[in-house]
Every structure is written in C-alpha cells, then in structure tokens.
Amino acid sequence: MRRELLDVVRVDEVGPYRLLRLKRGRLESGAPGQFFMLSPPGRLLPRPMSLSLATRTELGFLIDPVGPGTKALTTLVRGERLHVLGPLGNGFRLDVARPLLVGGGIGLAPFPYLSERLGRPPAVLGFRSQEHAEAAALVPNAEVVVEPRLVTEALRPGHDVLACGPEPMLRAVAELDPGAQLAWEAPMACGYGACYGCAVEIGGELKRLCVEGPVLERAA
C-alpha cells in the first residue's frame, strides 16, 4: 500500500465514460482486479477505481462520471495532480486454462489490463446503449451485447469466467457458473479495512470487500 501525488497526463473520452490517464510515479500496477483510491480535488473521501491500463509510464482508470467525485476526477486537466493510494485488495486469479471475460457497463474497467495479462482472451461485454458500447473498443476480442440482450445469453460453456459488472449481472453469472471469479463493488471510504463501510454478506457473514475482495470466488 503506497500513496503518491500523481500528475494528470490527460482525460480521454470513451463514449459516455472517461479514461483518466496519470503519470505512474513509483506505484505498482498490482494484479488486474485490484483497485486504487483516487482523491478527487475538493472532496472529502477518495473513490475506489480498478486499474484499466498500465504502461511503463502511465496508469489509466476508466470512470463513469455519475456523481460529484467521479465528475471531479474526469474534469482534471494536464498538469493537475491528485493523491492515489494502492494497489489494494485481491485481484483476479490468473492461473486459468480457458478464460472468458464477462462485463457489464463500467464493469469492463479492469478488463483492458486483465486481457493483456491473460493474452487477449475472448470477452462478452454488455451495455445499456450503443453509445456506452463504444467502450468495448478498449477490450480485444470482445463480443458486444446491447440491452435488451443480456451477457448471460451469450455465455458459452467450458470457460473459466472472470466477471465484473452490476450486482444483478454478477448474481446471474454465478447462477450459471458457480466457479466464476466475480469482482464486486461497494461504497467505501478508505479502501484499506479501516471504515467497515464496504461490508457485504459472504457465506452468511458480513465481510469487508476491500480486504476480502473485491474479487471473490463465490457469490456474495
């Protein structure tokens, strides 16, 4: 766990989403599915974001600007700086034979980095509109599904599923494939086990997603 003040390189438009690109500093990129806490200027609490892209010099975060924190993050400009803490939590297990990435909406955020680490495996990405589906361009070998079609209709048997997306999608995926690795999301204030804000029910017990997850091997 390391916290650094990173420089903004630029913010790219990806359909309705934004890709925040930062100079990497001395931060490790961690395992795909791990996350970082990004401190938006003018807000009290940092926001958890999984890493989308890692190069030798940059870290990239795909963000859906829906609230005051994510809007502040996606309107940063070159030369501005922000505090970044990470990498945090547990990422995807990469020792899988036939990986299939399954994503819903902004849940594709960790997939560009995950896809690269897994050798560009096939992916199924679901979106609520054609405009949102523009983000599929960030993930190689992706089949795009737009509502009312759902990703679960496009799942193929015989794969090791690694999924990230809204809770109903994760639950539906887990129903079809109990062995799937699922990346969950919850509001969290700290990202390192201090606030107990991100508790989710796992196996009948409330556990902190930032410490136990966000990637879990069983349905939460």
């Binding site: 009290l44 509001p187 204030a189 606030c195 107990y196 804000g197 508790a199 409330l206």
Partner: peptide
C-alpha cells in the same frame, strides 16, 4: 454484532455519514 445492512457510508458536503452499527 454483524452491524447494519449496506449502504453504510455516504459523503456529504462537509463531512461523511456512517451507519456501521457497532459491528
């Protein structure tokens, strides 16, 4: 005590709210 059901935290303009429930 398991504590309260999510959502347990929220940012406000000048602070944050929590309802962890003494977990």
């Amino acid at each position: 005590r398991e504590g309260n059901q999510p959502v347990r935290i929220a940012e406000t303009d000048f602070g944050m709210l929590n309802s962890i429930g003494l977990a």
